[in-house]
Simulated scan of single mutants.
Amino acid sequence: MAIVFAQENDLRVEDYAEVLRNCAMRHKRPVDNLDRLEEMLRGANFIVTAREDGEILGFARCLTDHAWVCFCSDFAVKESAQRRGVGRGILETCWRLLGPRIGFTLLSERDTVGFYEAAGMTRWEAGFYRTREDKS
């Protein structure tokens, strides 16, 4: 069956957690704290998913002002679905839905930089972050 890419701002926390538990970010997100994950989902205003036969394969969880920029705070694809065009399809769906006026930015793990560059994104080396103290 075909992979379906769509905006899904009402993504269920169970689907969100399933992808996180089955990707490289599983150690960097509170995957067993559904209340915290629910807060994270509700704070987003632009979510794009990939599904196959209804099964969640991946997502981009973002914040946007719909006027200038979109920040992707989580981008994840299940390890079992990688190398099938899922990640690129999610990115391209985000960009198509946002349109050409909206910039798209994210932070990448070092080992995924090549994926984003191959997808046509430009590396930006002037980014900063402050580590959170509460990781639960």
Rank of each mutant, 00 (worst) to 15 (best):
N45A: 05
C94I: 11
T49M: 00
L91N: 02
N9P: 02
R101S: 14
W68I: 09
C23K: 04
G58Y: 02
R12I: 07
E109C: 09
F75N: 03
W95Q: 11
G89N: 04
D10Q: 14
D134G: 02
D134A: 13
G87L: 04
E133D: 12
M25T: 08
N33Q: 09
R42W: 03
C23A: 08
F5N: 01
I102A: 02
D65I: 05
R96S: 13
G103V: 02
A17K: 06
E55Y: 05
S136A: 12
R96F: 04
E14S: 14
G54A: 10
L106N: 05
E117N: 01
V13A: 11
R130F: 10
G120P: 01
R84Y: 07
V69H: 10
G43W: 01
L98F: 05
V31Y: 03
R21V: 08
G54N: 03
Q7R: 14
N45M: 06
G120E: 03
T49E: 00
V31F: 04
K28Y: 14
T93Q: 05
G103E: 10
G43V: 06
S80R: 15
E39N: 14
A118D: 11
Q7H: 02
L57R: 01
K28T: 08
T49I: 08
A6V: 00
F115T: 05
W124C: 11
G127Y: 05
N9A: 08
A81R: 05
T122W: 01
V4T: 13
N45K: 04
H27V: 10
A67N: 11
K135V: 15
L11I: 13
V31A: 08
C62E: 00
C23I: 06
R42A: 13
C94T: 02
F104Q: 06
I56H: 09
E117Y: 01
E133I: 14
L98T: 03
F75Y: 06
N33I: 06
F115I: 07
A60I: 00
I3M: 13
A17C: 08
R26H: 14
R12D: 15
L91C: 13
T93G: 01
C62K: 00
H27T: 13
Q82K: 12
N9I: 03
E14H: 11
G58C: 05
R36L: 11
W124E: 09
R51C: 07
V48L: 00
H66E: 09
R12G: 09
H66P: 00
I3H: 05
N45R: 04
G89T: 06
T64A: 07
W124G: 10
M40I: 14
N33C: 09
Y129K: 11
F75C: 01
L106G: 06
E125W: 02
Q82T: 10
E117R: 11
G85T: 10
A81I: 09
L11K: 04
N22I: 04
